[in-house]
Amino acid sequence: MNHTIRVDRNHPACFILLLDQSYSMSAPMVGAAGLSKAQALADATNRLLMQLVQRCVLDEQGPRHYFDIALIGYSDRITRLLKSGDGFGNPLVSSPQLADSFVRIHEEPDGQSWPVWVEPLADGQTMMCAALDLAYDFAAGWVASHQDSPAPVVINITDGEATDGTLDDLAERVARLVGLSTVDGPLIMFNVAVAARAAEPVLFPNDAAGLADPYTAGLFHTSSVLPTRMLEYVRTEADRHGLPRPGAGARGFVCNADLAGVVRALNVGTL
């Protein structure tokens, strides 16, 4: 089980993003002047979704069904953030459905523009355990009917601790998630800890040494070891940007993430 199946119309990939939308996300985002964490995360997510759609367009017939994706927002409540043609019927939205379901077009003063699927939100507490429970339901249903597809990927982006459970509760839920698998291998779990203040990002470490607190270390330990193709990619990117190369056993974990760190994690997780 080496996570080597290639994505095509007969073997679509599955991505589930969990977005912290609690009140603390209203604080400024490190590395994104003038933006709150909520706004920066929404912008990064919308750009990622646009890129996923673009990857699926190979001809004039429109996007092919290469991906199924779900976005789960969590604060005081758990919200499915993507709509398909039938509203909230199917929790996983296909790439063709995604292409048709944006809510508006955002335009920058410099002329740049992109579709918007997700609006920023920052309110309430951090029901991360409940979000992981819903992610399990979505992923379990998907793997049951896609055993010949690549293993699903879950990416959790947060700036704080869960308010609906302990670290042990989180670990238990992640263990259930990574217990799901296709013939390609087990589900791949990413955790991205958004920076509360300016600090050196920790990108894809292979141990918890130097992490600031037990909670952050707990997120590291619930993150999957990167499959070979992802490890090769992050090493190439590290060389290109003059960053330290992740070692053997590097995990899908980013700590003290500024906007660039969030984008790197999203890019790696959706390879």
Rank of each mutant, 00 (worst) to 15 (best):
L41H: 07
A70L: 04
S84Q: 06
Q39R: 04
S36C: 07
A38D: 06
G89L: 12
A32D: 14
T79K: 12
L58W: 04
I69Y: 00
F67G: 09
A33V: 14
F88C: 12
S36D: 13
Q97D: 15
V30C: 00
Q61G: 03
F67R: 06
I69S: 06
A70E: 02
C56W: 03
R77T: 14
A40Q: 05
N90G: 04
A38M: 07
C56N: 01
G73V: 08
A40Y: 03
N46P: 10
I69Q: 03
A33N: 12
A70S: 13
R55G: 14
L35H: 14
C56E: 00
D100A: 15
V30K: 00
M29G: 13
I72S: 03
I69W: 02
R64I: 00
E60H: 02
Y66M: 01
G87M: 09
D59C: 00
S36Q: 13
G89K: 10
L81W: 05
A38N: 09
L35S: 14
R77W: 08
S75F: 06
A99V: 05
C56S: 06
D100H: 10
S36F: 03
A33P: 10
L71W: 06
L98V: 10
L49D: 05
I72A: 02
G89A: 13
M50I: 04
S101H: 08
S94N: 06
L52K: 09
M29K: 12
Q54G: 13
Q97V: 07
G34A: 13
I78T: 14
G87T: 12
R80W: 07
F102V: 08
L52P: 01
S101G: 12
L98Q: 12
S84W: 01
G73E: 05
S36P: 08
D59Y: 00
G87R: 11
M50D: 13
N46V: 07
K83H: 13
I78M: 08
M29H: 09
F88P: 04
D86P: 00
L92M: 09
A33S: 15
L49N: 04
L98E: 09
N90T: 10
D43W: 02
D76T: 09
A40L: 07
I78D: 09
Q97I: 06
A33I: 11
E60G: 01
K37S: 08
M29L: 13
Q97E: 15
Y74E: 02
G87N: 11
L48C: 07
S95A: 13
A44F: 06
Q61K: 01
P91G: 05
R80T: 12
L71F: 09
S84D: 14
S101T: 08
I72Y: 05
R77A: 14
Y74L: 08
R77H: 11
N46K: 01
L52G: 02
F102S: 14
S84R: 02
A44R: 10
D59A: 00
K37P: 03
L48F: 09
P91S: 08
P96T: 07
G62R: 01
S95H: 05
V57A: 02
N46F: 10
S95W: 01
P91Y: 06
Q61D: 14
L58S: 14
S75E: 11
D68V: 00
Y74P: 01
Y74K: 10
Q39I: 08
D68H: 00
P63G: 02
L48T: 06
L52Y: 05
